[in-house]
C-alpha cells in the first residue's frame, strides 16, 4: 500500500506532494511538514555516510518502522524522491527511478511552462502520476 510521495529539488523545495491511503492527517501545516521531512533526509544522508564501515555508493536507501517504510531515491542532479509505503513492500528503487525517468523528466523537465524550482502545478503531470501510481502492483 502506498501512503504518500514527496519530491524535493536539490535546494530542498518540495516540488510535489501527493497522498493516497494516508490515515493519519498531518498535525502540522504542510510547509512545516516538508521542512521537517527534508531536514530529516538531509541528516539521514550525512548520518549514513559517516556511520558506514565501507565507502557508500548510493548511501541511504530506506528505513522501516513498525507501521510504514520510507523509500528514498536521489538522482545525481539532486532531485529527491521519497515514497512512504506499508512495510510489506520490498525494494522499489527501480520503480522510483521509472517515476523519475518516465513521469518527471517526460512531463515536467520537457514542459517549458514548468519552472523546475517551484511546486509543480501541471495537471497533465498529476494525471500521469496518478495513472502510474495506481498501476503499481503494491498500490
Amino acid at each position: 500500500m502506498i501512503f504518500n510521495l514527496y519530491i524535493f529539488d536539490r535546494l530542498g523545495t518540495c516540488v510535489l506532494y501527493a497522498e493516497w491511503n494516508r490515515k493519519k492527517p498531518a498535525n502540522l501545516p504542510k510547509d512545516e511538514e516538508f521542512q521537517n521531512m527534508y531536514g530529516m533526509l538531509f541528516s539521514l544522508r550525512s548520518f549514513v555516510k559517516r556511520l558506514s564501515p565501507l565507502d557508500c555508493k548510493d548511501g541511504f536507501l530506506n528505513y522501516q518502522t513498525s507501521k510504514y517504510k520510507l523509500h528514498y531515491y536521489e538522482t545525481p542532479s539532486g532531485l529527491k524522491l521519497v515514497m512512504n509505503t506499508s512495510t510489506d513492500v520490498g525494494d522499489i528503487r527501480e520503480t522510483l527511478r521509472q517515476l523519475y525517468g518516465q513521469i518527471y523528466v517526460e512531463y515536467v523537465v520537457k514542459n517549458p511552462l514548468c519552472p523546475l524550482d517551484k511546486p509543480i502545478t501541471s495537471d497533465f503531470f498529476k494525471d500521469k502520476l496518478e495513472t502510474f501510481i495506481k498501476a503499481l502492483p503494491f498500490y
Binding site: 549514513v48 555508493k57 522501516q64 518502522t65
Partner: peptide, 27 residues
C-alpha cells in the same frame, strides 16, 4: 536519537514506532 523521533512524527500511519531497520548499500 532525533532521527528516530522524526521517524515517528512524520509517519503517515497512527501510532508508529521509530526507525527499526535502516538500510544503506553498505550496511
Amino acid at each position: 536519537h532525533s532521527l528516530f523521533a522524526f521517524g515517528c512524527q512524520l509517519s503517515p500511519e497512527e501510532r508508529s514506532s521509530g526507525i527499526q531497520i535502516l538500510e544503506a548499500d553498505t550496511f
